[in-house]
Amino acid sequence: MIKNMTRGFAATALAFAALAPASPAHADELTLVEAITSLPVAEEAREGYKRELHPHWRDDDKNGCSARADVLIAEAIEAPTVGAGCTVSGGVWHSYYDDALVSGPSGVDIDHLVPLAEVHDSGGYAWTTERRRRYANDL
């Protein structure tokens, strides 16, 4: 996801919550509003975050491209050239949040919908390295 994507996440969640049905479709399901209000609230752990604790930009799908390259390829509005070793060049990307066009992969920052530091602060500090790696590379 292009940098700045997290700006609209909270507003989007609240907007969807307002549109959620008043009662669940099945007795054992929660509405979006019920699910959000049932989330536990606790103090964040602001100590000990290090980005390197979250092994990222791996090739978990074994296609020869890192997770970063997979996102660049998938989200381009003008396809980049993919060379040997999954080297990405050229291409154009659109930032939905500031309506900017970005040419070339070096101008694109890929962020997680929930940033790694926020994951850490909100309980990810207790995750195993394997779980942090899976989260950091989830497409």
Rank of each mutant, 00 (worst) to 15 (best):
M1K: 13
I2T: 15
K3E: 15
M5P: 03
R7H: 14
F9E: 06
A10Y: 13
A10E: 10
T12G: 07
A13K: 03
A13T: 08
A15S: 11
F16W: 13
A17S: 13
A18R: 14
L19I: 05
A20D: 11
A20E: 01
P21A: 12
P21L: 04
P21W: 01
P21V: 09
A22H: 04
S23T: 15
S23C: 02
S23Q: 15
A25I: 11
D28W: 09
E29H: 13
L30G: 03
T31S: 10
L32W: 07
V33A: 15
E34C: 04
L39P: 02
L39G: 04
P40C: 07
A42H: 12
E43C: 08
E43P: 12
E44K: 13
E44T: 10
A45K: 14
R46Q: 10
Y49L: 03
Y49G: 00
L53C: 01
L53V: 02
N63K: 06
G64W: 00
C65V: 04
C65N: 07
R68K: 15
R68G: 12
A69F: 00
I73L: 03
I73Q: 03
A74V: 08
A74H: 09
A74M: 01
E75S: 10
A76D: 02
E78P: 03
E78V: 15
G83F: 01
G85W: 05
C86N: 07
S89E: 09
G90I: 06
G90K: 06
G91W: 01
G91R: 02
W93I: 10
Y96T: 10
Y96C: 10
Y97D: 13
D98M: 06
D98H: 05
D99V: 05
A100D: 08
V102S: 07
V102A: 07
S103T: 15
P105S: 10
G107D: 09
I110Q: 00
D111R: 06
D111W: 10
L113C: 08
V114M: 11
A117I: 11
H120L: 03
G123F: 00
Y125G: 11
Y125E: 15
W127R: 06
T128M: 02
T129V: 15
E130R: 12
R131D: 14
R133G: 09
R133M: 13
N137D: 11
